[in-house]
Nucleic acid binder design. Structure first.
Lengths: 223, 223
DNA sequence: GCAGGGGTGACAGCTTGATGACAGTTTCTC
DNA sequence: GAGAAACTGTCATCAAGCTGTCACCCCTGC
């Protein structure tokens, strides 16, 4: 999941970043509205977490601009205190959810995940893949009820492939979903590496990753 | 698709070229207005991507010249920052679209493709060819829902034939749509080769490539 | 039957992807 | 906090697939 966090206070931003990254998101941070605009122009995000109070304007401005352009990226607003005004105007302008600070981090994680899931139209959290069952929220994979341990990166990769199972996903797209701008010096070879590692772990489970030369990879399920 | 990119900054040009070429376009690069004029004089393009700020003038000058000559080649303008002036004058002078830098590369790809498609008057992205379905954007071909893998060149060739299905396309025209000036040392035999390879892959799918001796090739659909 | 364009198999060079080994880093455990 | 274990990403090497040339054959229309 590629995520943009727009939040100016250092401590808050840091805390949220750490949590979301641990939860497997490739997470970019913007400290100002201006930075956020640049990020949004260059990168497509799965979810945006947007603070309302920013040094150079209101988060709702960005929200409004994006919706005016027809961008439907799920956006979760953060508001410093419970303000009926903020809430009403946010939802009016097309925010998908909002959260009042201070909040429980697990709450934020759950809501972000819900937005991400809703975007893909998945109803339940767990996805059945032949003999495998994948739970992106809990970040677990099981083979016939037996846990099959994967690392953070492997799960991030698998998550994108599962969301697009049966369809080809380009290597660039996979890269963007796994690595944030901060990790931009990572080579494209890393994607190939994790594909290889995933393949090895998936083994003969009936789930395969097919290579489409020059186009990308596709997750196929036997039977 | 034969495309001209007019862009002076090296990195930007490089990045765009790589993307568009991977997307199957035969892509010429002009670093100056002067170079661009030469290209346009010599070669017919399907789409032109034109930066406004160039070392020896404004992209809008070229736009104006071409429109004055009655050339209707789809042109997408690139502008360094959001300037209402640029936008208004570009669209006034007959630009077909514009994009503000920085942008998401997929956005550029999608817009270029939209212009190309519009030029041919295609409404939807996917084209039905008997039992085959061809999606030039995703660059996929399917036979009864089964993917039929083609290589980059094969798809580029097929794309031109499909756009002109039922009509004869000259070998020179096919050559120009597949190879850019940089690949000009490639022999005309290469077109024949790819025709042969395409024929082999198409097999008995009801889509045939007929040879019109001395004139070119024509894509026919049975039934 | 002959001239010239077109078709095609074989091949060599190149690009892209796969993978083992390794070193730096983080995380876990005691 | 020290040591161990696991995770990450780079590099080098290997394998597979794509590309375009060549050579040679086959048609087709005179």
């Amino acid at each position: 999941m590629r995520l943009l966090l727009v939040e100016d206070t250092y401590d808050m931003a840091e805390a949220i970043m750490i949590r979301l990254e641990r939860a497997g998101a490739a997470c970019d941070l913007a400290r100002t509205l201006e930075q956020a605009r640049e990020c949004v122009a260059v990168q497509r995000y799965d979810v945006i977490v947007l603070d309302i109070n920013l040094p150079d304007g209101l988060g709702t401005d960005l929200l409004r601009e994006m919706r005016a352009r027809g961008e439907r990226t799920p956006i979760l607003m953060l508001t410093a205190e419970f303000s009926v005004d903020d809430r009403v105007s946010s939802l009016n302008w097309g925010a998908d959810d909002y959260l009042v600070k201070p909040f429980d981090h697990r709450e934020l994680e759950a809501r972000v995940r819900a937005l991400y899931r809703r975007e893909a139209g998945e109803k339940s959290e767990e996805v059945a893949l032949g003999r495998l069952r994948f739970n992106p929220g809990a970040r677990t994979l099981r083979l016939d009820d037996e846990p099959l341990p994967l690392t953070r990166r492997e799960i991030s990769l698998l998550e994108v492939l599962v969301r697009n199972r049966g369809k080809v996903v380009s290597k660039e797209r996979l890269f963007e979903s796994i690595f944030s701008f901060e990790e931009t010096d990572v080579g494209m070879n890393a994607v190939e590496l994790y594909i290889a590692r995933l393949r090895k772990k998936l083994g003969e489970t009936g789930v395969r990753i097919a290579t489409q030369r020059g186009l990308g990879y596709r997750l196929d399920i036997d039977g």
